[in-house]
């Protein structure tokens, strides 16, 4: 690691006063320290926000929940309210990382984790995300873990988070504290930038913004919720493809089909056109296949990741079949009852 100064922030004012383009917030640190050891990230100062009061709670907010930025992934996945009313989020969290990492990783930090593109990690290789203007070594390289949607000429990195896919399907909003003490909220599509010309700019946050919470809207109830992750080993691996779904069926017709995807895109992916194709229709495998085809219509593949297209189409069809009752639910598909 390069030398850095360490500051333990006492409150949000103190923290934001120390933040600038050459500093980094540290919360769980599980991704940041990994990157600092490899000198992919070389902040001059770490601002530790772990001792700031009040950021580690899950509290009611309207009909939804306010999840503090420092709530560990384990606690969020295990929270009784999340398990009962937002099971897709529990499932997404539990599909990610390992028990040790989930104990340390936080809600805010999980959202801001960096891609696991191997060329981003290898400082001897060109990478427009790590070192703007140097090129993209992933193109023409090993692309098994790379994205096929939301990519640009300059970057094909995939967003690695499972949790963020669960948050995305639930329509979560991120609460951000600005340096002047005001608060604002962003949807995940407003938070994450597409790579475009500047893949190094991953979010719309300013260096002195602090994520303080994630807000979940009212639960979708009744509904069937599902998170399915396809990966190279049974546990503790990043997604090749993941599908999150929140589905309602009434009178034999699909009335709601919120879908989000991981492993295939530069940010947690949602496609309103695919959802619109499903709503109002009678569930059928043909319909689900057509939706999958639509999802990947604009995909740009590499030789090493073209397999993700049939994989995500089949995964989507399987998830929708379970969520609409066409096939028996398996582990990962949960019912949410009416809220008492």
């Amino acid at each position: 690691m390069r030398p850095f100064d360490y500051h333990r922030a006492t409150d949000l004012d103190d923290a934001s006063g120390h933040l600038n383009a050459s500093t980094q917030i540290i919360a769980g640190g599980t991704n940041l320290l990994d990157l600092m050891k490899l000198q992919v990230m070389t902040p001059q100062q770490l601002v530790d926000i772990n001792r700031i009061d009040g950021l580690d709670r899950i509290e009611p907010e309207g009909e939804g929940l306010r999840i503090g930025a420092l709530v560990p992934n384990s606690d969020l996945a295990g929270d009784e309210r999340i398990r009962r009313n937002y099971p897709v989020l529990s499932r997404a969290l539990l599909a990610g990382a390992s028990g040790q990492l989930r104990n340390k990783a936080t809600t805010g930090g999980n959202l801001l984790q960096r891609t696991r593109c191997p060329y981003f990690y290898e400082t001897a290789m060109p990478c427009n995300k790590r070192d703007p203007g140097t090129g993209c070594a992933a193109r023409g390289g090993a692309t098994r873990m790379n994205a096929v949607l939301g990519v640009s000429e300059h970057c094909i990195a995939a967003h690695p988070s499972d949790m963020a896919v669960g948050m995305r399907v639930l329509g979560a909003e991120v609460e951000i504290r600005r340096a002047d003490g005001s608060h604002t909220r962003k949807t995940l599509d407003e938070l994450y930038s597409l790579p475009g010309e500047r893949p190094d700019i991953e979010t719309t946050l300013s260096p002195d913004d602090i994520i303080t919470a994630v807000i979940l809207p009212a639960p979708v109830a009744p509904s069937v919720q599902s998170y399915r992750k396809v990966r190279d080993r049974a546990s503790y691996a990043f997604a090749l493809v993941s599908v999150a779904a929140v589905v309602q069926v009434e009178g034999g017709k699909i009335t709601r089909a919120d879908l989000a995807f991981g492993g295939i895109a530069s940010r947690p992916w949602r496609d309103p056109a695919v959802e619109a194709m499903l709503v109002g229709e009678t569930p059928s495998i043909d319909l689900f296949r057509a939706a999958g085809k639509r999802l990947v219509a604009a995909a740009e593949t590499q030789p090493g990741n073209a397999f993700k297209l049939p994989m995500v189409r089949r995964t989507l069809a399987g998830v929708l079949a379970e969520a609409t009752g066409l096939s028996e639910p398996t582990t990962g598909t949960d019912n949410v009852g009416e809220i008492a």
């Binding site: 640190g29 599980t30 772990n50 384990s74 990492l101």
Partner: peptide
């Protein structure tokens, strides 16, 4: 009381 990877955390964070 909780298991973590001690390689991915800084000593100074554990006052």
């Amino acid at each position: 009381g909780r298991r973590i990877n001690s390689c991915l955390t800084l000593a100074v964070m554990h006052e």
